[in-house]
Write a protein that binds this DNA or RNA. Structure first.
Lengths: 232, 232
DNA sequence: CGCCCGAATTTTGCATGCAACTGTCGAACT
DNA sequence: AGTTCGACAGTTGCATGCAAAATTCGGGCG
């Protein structure tokens, strides 16, 4: 055995928490998770510690880990942080300047989204998957271009929130995605033109609007902390 | 045994890394650390994983952990993040409004720093310690008042940087500290007056200036990655 | 009827042992 | 001589076992 194992447990546990498979406040018992995963307590323990560091669990010495509850407010808080930090990334990318190759990849991603949206029809699953890929290329290229080692991990933490993760839009409304792609194009042009402040504020606004959209889309049936109990 | 133990190891290991007791790139061996700490490999393993999550170590499966090197650039990056996020905290605190009690504690901390600085003399160790306490009260009150669960942990991560941590100013120049206290007073007044945007920008500038000061104070003899080797 | 105290059970914390993987060194082969 | 293969040492990965702490539950007392 012993491939990248128990790493896998961390990912599985994290995804289960993010999928809302545990109630907020629920006590996660090591043996229970261990036999659920078919492993011993040792790797489970590591996985629990990792999720605690991610802010998903709360730890008390000699008492173990409980699931931290999330509220709607926390989603707004996360998008506040994300808007600010991705804005910083855009500004830094503009100030430092991106390589022609990076700018090209960004432009290509934008163009491919345009192609996806050329028809009026709603997007099928494959198209949604493609959109997510292109969207990720755009954001990641800018984050990488900021050359700040703290940005990427912070953004990941802030985006790992139960019932919002994975980052899937509910609607995939073509009109909305067109608007987002316009944002992307504007941000790209600002970065290419080395207009850092404009890039920062456009990115901030872009993320902020996306956050509002997501909050709106799940505000009807929002109720975390009463998710199904995967154990017992 | 079994108090909050092995938690202690995480803290000790972290502080050793932050104190620069390992070379950048150095491979940290579990048994070596274990006998150094007088413990077994199990808690050491948890401590290593924790420091990796903090961004201080790099992990490769089946190969263990190596110390991530830090450069001067990373300190600037950290202060960029900190300025932005503490600015957000100040704005949110102003927008939400702080309790009279919290505002009072902030004002008291500012006044006590004034008292510390009432003479022209340089600060002795006790006075420096007192200044750090009052400074922490100020910043923490605002961070707590922002009511955003992501702010505090992110700020902590971003401030845990080898050779800058613990947050001790090199100079403690009274003129400088007076300037900082003026900043604090201005920020407090903005928050009390619910002027969120002003509070944000004042805080951002305050942190930015502090970062410049720190970078300047250690730019002469900067050279991380060639720190003394605590092992072997 | 409610509260408090104590033994049994459960759960966490850690040490140890063994299996698997990595890196190294040396010898044989091309 | 250079390269490759293989054995050995060293290190990490995980399961298990035992001790300590916490939780639970039952009985006695107020």
């Amino acid at each position: 055995m012993t491939q990248p194992i128990a790493q896998a447990l961390s990912a599985r546990l994290r995804d289960m928490i993010l999928a809302g498979e545990f109630r907020g406040g629920q006590h996660l018992r090591e043996v229970q998770l261990a036999q659920m995963f078919g492993a011993s307590r040792t790797p489970v323990r590591l996985a629990l510690a990792a999720s605690e560091k991610d802010g998903l669990l709360e730890y008390s010495p000699n008492r173990g880990y409980v699931v931290r509850p999330f509220e709607t407010k926390d989603i707004a808080s996360a998008f506040e942080m994300r808007a600010l930090i991705e804005g910083l990334a855009a500004r830094k990318a503009a100030e430092r300047g991106l390589s022609a190759e990076a700018l090209g990849r960004i432009a290509a991603a934008i163009d491919q989204v345009d192609a996806l949206l050329s028809t009026e029809a709603a997007l099928d699953d494959a198209a949604r998957e493609a959109w997510r890929t292109h969207n990720a290329v755009f954001h990641r290229a800018i984050i990488a271009g900021a050359d700040n080692r703290f940005i990427a991990p912070t953004l990941e933490t802030v985006q790992r929130i139960p019932s919002v993760y994975p980052p899937i839009l509910a609607s995939y409304d073509p009109a909305l995605l067109r608007k987002y792609n316009d944002h992307h194009r504007g941000i790209r042009d600002c970065i290419a033109g080395r207009q850092g402040v404009r890039a920062e504020y456009l990115m901030r606004e872009h993320v902020f609007l996306a956050g509002e959209e997501i909050c709106a889309s799940l505000s009807p049936a929002r109720a975390h902390g009463i998710a199904p109990d995967a154990l017992s």
